[in-house]
């Protein structure tokens, strides 16, 4: 998903990781976690794709993903689908968790107001609600305005979005209404899937409500070396 329709978050994450002093690589074989097939009832199609991706990251000390939902998929279903995935899961970090753990000293500054949308799988499967907010709160100048039901589903749901387009869009409208009420500059999330869906719906309904991945926000907030935040 990140590589196909939404490369911005992953590119931003690479910048952030470099600013933290790491030397990130994207293995030539890195690909998809298999979630689209798995959740549509096609585990046999999902397994080879996940196996290929798991194999690609052999030898990496830490695996950082900018898609909370993919992280949740691999953690929750990976090992049962592809046994080798359990080692992957042990080394896997969701982007905000990695930055929170290893980027404590990173100076961050960005003058903006944002509202944060909790992606469902990151929130409920990984149980991660607080780290993204803590990371945002570390950015000097950034103001977070909570929307109503920040953890309410945006209606994406993978293939659900194309099997039930009107229903999925109606759910996006609810989310966009709640987000619009906060009158912020950006809707931020840690999940590119939600963001592609929400910005697509906002675009189709003529709303000026830009979305931004949390990795892009952090990248934008990086203070160049030598400048004090």
């Amino acid at each position: 998903m990140a590589d196909l329709a939404s490369p911005g978050p992953a590119l931003a994450a690479l910048d952030v990781l470099r600013a933290m002093g790491f030397d990130p690589v994207v293995p030539a074989d890195a690909g998809c976690c298999g979630q689209p097939a798995f959740n549509t009832g096609q585990p046999r199609a999902a397994a080879p794709v996940l196996r290929h991706t798991v194999g690609a990251f052999e030898g990496c000390d830490a695996i950082v993903t900018v898609a909370g939902s993919c992280a949740a998929m691999v953690a929750h279903n990976g090992p049962a689908l592809v046994p080798a995935a359990s080692g992957f899961v042990r080394r896997m970090w969701e982007f905000t968790q990695f930055v929170a753990a290893f980027g404590a000293g990173l100076p961050l500054h960005l003058d903006a107001t944002v509202t944060y949308h909790d992606g469902c799988h990151m929130t409920r499967v990984l149980g991660e609600r607080t780290t993204p907010r803590e990371l945002l709160s570390r950015i000097d100048g950034l103001r977070v305005v909570e929307m109503v039901d920040p953890d309410g589903c945006c209606g994406f749901g993978g293939t659900f979005a194309v099997k039930f387009p009107e229903l999925s869009a109606a759910m996006a409208d609810v989310k966009l209404d709640h987000a619009a009420a906060t009158e912020v500059d950006w809707i931020v999330s840690a999940d590119p899937g939600c963001l592609v869906h929400l910005s697509g719906r906002a675009g189709a309904t003529g709303r000026a409500l830009p979305t931004r991945h949390i990795a892009e926000i952090v990248r934008d907030a990086l203070v160049p070396a030598g400048v004090t935040a």
């Binding site: 590589d3 490369p7 590119l11 690479l14 990130p24 999925s168 697509g200 675009g203």
Partner: peptide, 25 residues
């Protein structure tokens, strides 16, 4: 698939497809 997606949403841009890998390379 594209038409169902686009019936209610605008299409994402695919111009950057594969860019992540190229950037890291």
């Amino acid at each position: 698939l594209v038409s169902t997606w686009a019936s209610v949403r605008s299409l994402p841009s695919f111009t950057g497809a594969g860019a992540v890998r190229r950037a890291a390379r």
